[in-house]
Amino acid sequence: MKKLGLIIVLICGSLMLYGTIDFPDWADPSSPASTHLSPYFIETAMHDTAVPNIVTAVLADYRGYDTMFETTVIFAAGLACFFLLRRFQRRAPDVNLFRHMPTGITLRIKKGGKVPVDSSEFERIDSIWVPYDLIIKTTCRLLIPFILLFALYVIAHGHHSPGGGFQGGVILGAGIILYAISHNLRAAKARIKERFDAYMCSAGVFIYVGTGVLCLLMGANFLDYSALAPLLGTDPIMARSHGILIVEIGVGIAVMAVMICLYYNLSSAGRQDEGL
């Protein structure tokens, strides 16, 4: 079986290598891509969409379909991780550890013992003993707002500089993951619940597709943002620019939610009670 697989891989690989012979050379100025496509985008992107960053214009406007399905792929990756890893049977741990906050004493409560009432004085901690680290917690609490702010900047500034929904979404997700690492998984889940995360996941994709459908309803092609001009109250060219921003926000939300979902499931082996 293994040999058969190897043979198939070798045949496919050699066919693909054979196919690359027909490709134009690297940086060939007379290739179709650089004689037709690139000059067209360079010359018309600014007039058509009022977006100075041509990459963003091509990504979210001219190639809107492509990016929509990229977002769907990310959503599918999150779903796959959820279905493969998530385990719902709750297994009561043998020992529960609690920390008394004012004194720093750790309580060890065996199965069946009386668990302290959830108050501000007691904090449940993981069975893999985690010391109370003031330095890391304080620094992360200082840094996370700046990280999230920077992520929003990256999303919103994708029109003018490198950035956009994917990058900004990853930074947003990383901010939340940093919070989960510096405290623990339960603290992060208290902020962003699993259900909320799942809603955000689909909401991101929904915003993207919904924008496209809205364009259809306004009587234009799917994802032709210039049709949104009457809704946004601007001229068609600026409407394309705003449409790109709406779509980028959708991408950002989806990517952030998927990143968080991946971290929650991978760090706790799908149980989501204790993790890193």
Binding site: D133, T139, L142, F146
Partner: peptide, 20 residues
């Protein structure tokens, strides 16, 4: 400023993990 904040903390966390 940000590197001055994060780099020592990262080193501290790595040392902590090594000790633990």
């Amino acid at each position: 400023v940000f590197v001055f904040l994060t780099s020592p903390v990262a080193t501290h966390a790595i040392v902590d993990a090594g000790v633990r």
